[in-house]
Design a protein around this nucleic acid. Sequence first.
RNA 1: GUGGGCGUAGCUCAGCUGGUAGAGCACCCGGUUGUGGUCCGGGAUGUCGCGGGUUCGAGCCCCGUCGCUCACCCCA
Length: 422
Amino acid sequence: MSSQFQAPKGVSEYFPPRSNAFEYVVRTLTSPALAAGYEPIELPIFEDTELFTRGVGESTDVVSKEMYTFEDRGGRSITLRPEGTAGVMRAVIEHNLDRGQLPVKLFYKGPFFRAERPQAGRYRQFYQFGIEAIGVNDPQLDAEVIAIAYQGYKRLGLTNFTLHITSLGDAESRAKHRTALVSFIEKLDLDEETRSRAAKNPLRLFDDKRSEIQSKMHSAPLLMDFLNEASKENFVAVKKALTAVGVPFEVNPRMVRGLDYYTGTTFEFVHSGLGAQSGIGGGGRYDGLMATLGGQNLSGIGFGLGIDRIILAMETEGISLTSMKYTDLYVVALGERAREESFVLVNQLRNQGFVVEQSYGERALKGAMKAADKSGARFAIVIGDAELSSGSIELKNMATGETVSVTLSGLAQTLAEKSRLL
RNA sequence: GUGGGCGUAGCUCAGCUGGUAGAGCACCCGGUUGUGGUCCGGGAUGUCGCGGGUUCGAGCCCCGUCGCUCACCCCA
């Protein structure tokens, strides 16, 4: 029980049966993105540290205290990626992906790293699925990105979640609001730490969970009320498009995102069954990011969805996660000669596309059948000397217990027919 | 970085005011010379997180330490 090595603190790990859910979730989230023409991009897990300090923003907690940063052997400062968008933008700029048809539509998945104190749904290594659509600023594209996330959650069977959206407007709107908000906050009685947080980004105070802060912020000026005409129209168009495709949302003018690059439409999916870390995904538009990183001045929009939290959410909703393993046939062989022959048979069936498992070694038949049951296989066969000489086997339906006689040579055919029936 | 809770079998946990370590599940074998799920019988499994202290005696009390966990800040 006291194993010599333990996984590093706060990492999420997946092993059977739960790992089946992990693969399934990633696959399911990917399909709506594929349906909308997004293409995969595979990127490094570590990047030049400056990519994040400049892209994500020095004032964010992510950059100022949560990055895994180290020096490589060449004396370069390297950081394990804490989020996905900055790396995607770097690759787009570096490889000139934005020189052709726009928008560039990409999706990615993989591990991300933040050196935080772990808690329920928060890990130091966690997994995200994300998409980015770069180079076009169209409210329909905003709605498309949000709808892709929404469809992913729905396909997984999730229901207890809410989509919060707001608009941070354009630079002009934000500047006006910031002035008003800062002068409002100056008049508040705040502790030193909170005040310094507000100095970095005054919007952060909207997101403070402490009730005394919330009540003080109750009458704070909302960015929503400072949107200029263009920003307002844009937000109306996004909402209209979402409604048109049946994506329900709640406008939440107090919503704040943790990364500094967001502008315009921002959104967050919140699940009700998760405890303190309830965000299962979020994203938004980023107007200045690409230029900040040395590329063209193109706008983009994207999201990141937390695979770990989605799996937790599915578990709290009682969505069955362990039944995602699928096996057509379990083969039990009795005796030396039968084991040799059945090994060949099993391989043939696998090559024909069936999912086939088998028993190994000499096992008691009862135990082997139990293993067949545990495997979740839909059918099982037993092969011994009798079957080899007669060429006929009993194909057993594990759910009903019924058996039918089939010839060894006709097994694949029969299996294929039975599969089609179910 | 700050605060709470918890470390006993593979898993979930019980263990009285200190007196020789338990249950359920899972696993293996058998009841049924070759057909799983239910039932019955049998079997294997523990540095009681680690180190020290108190005591005739510590899983239990005290100190330290490590780990896990939940929450705050923040976020997927």
